[in-house]
Amino acid sequence: MAEAGAPLSRSPIHRALSRSNHLMGADRELVLLTGLATVILIFVVLTWFSVLLGIAIWIAVVGILRIMAKADPMMRQVYLRHIGYRPTYRPTSSPWRRY
């Protein structure tokens, strides 16, 4: 047993183990997917307009993803779990309620 005046033991928690996996301040997979989609847009159409549109779309979407990651770093995983559980948990007050 620890005495009343004994100091508490401390265990270090390294930041690399507790932080979310982000790239450019947003979710890594979503940033890479957005970059891939804009690169495909640019190289399929091959006009100056598509280059400017692709860059504008990428900057806008990465900005939105950064806002999303700042609000909740795990928002993508939470949303995917919510979609997966939707058939299981009905939005009703009782399991015996008629639909």
Rank of each mutant, 00 (worst) to 15 (best):
L41Y: 04
F43G: 09
L41A: 08
A71G: 06
P12V: 15
W96K: 05
I83A: 13
A6K: 13
L41W: 11
R86I: 14
Y79R: 11
M74V: 13
I59S: 03
I83P: 11
R97V: 13
W96E: 08
S20G: 04
I59C: 11
M68P: 00
A4R: 15
V44E: 06
L30S: 05
M75W: 01
Y85N: 15
Y79W: 13
G25Y: 03
S11W: 15
G84C: 08
S94P: 08
I55S: 05
A4S: 11
E29C: 11
M75N: 01
L53R: 06
S20Q: 07
R28E: 13
D72F: 00
V44F: 12
R98A: 12
G54D: 01
Y79K: 02
R90F: 10
L46Q: 11
L32C: 05
S11A: 15
L30M: 08
R98E: 11
I13V: 13
D27Q: 05
I67W: 07
L36M: 04
R15V: 15
I83N: 14
M1S: 04
E29W: 02
V78A: 00
V31F: 01
E3N: 15
W96P: 06
L53T: 09
R19E: 14
L33I: 02
P12N: 15
P73Y: 01
V51G: 02
A37T: 03
S94K: 10
S18P: 01
T38E: 07
D27N: 11
R10Y: 12
A4F: 06
H82V: 08
A26G: 04
A2P: 00
H14F: 10
M24P: 01
S93Q: 13
I64C: 10
L33P: 03
L53I: 14
L17V: 05
I57A: 10
A69G: 09
G63V: 03
R10E: 15
T92F: 14
W58F: 15
G35T: 04
V51L: 05
L8A: 14
S50C: 09
Y99V: 04
T88R: 10
A60W: 02
S18V: 12
G84M: 14
Y79M: 12
F49G: 06
V31G: 01
A26C: 12
R97E: 12
A56M: 06
H82P: 02
A71K: 07
T38R: 00
L23Y: 09
S93K: 14
Y99E: 08
G54K: 01
I57D: 03
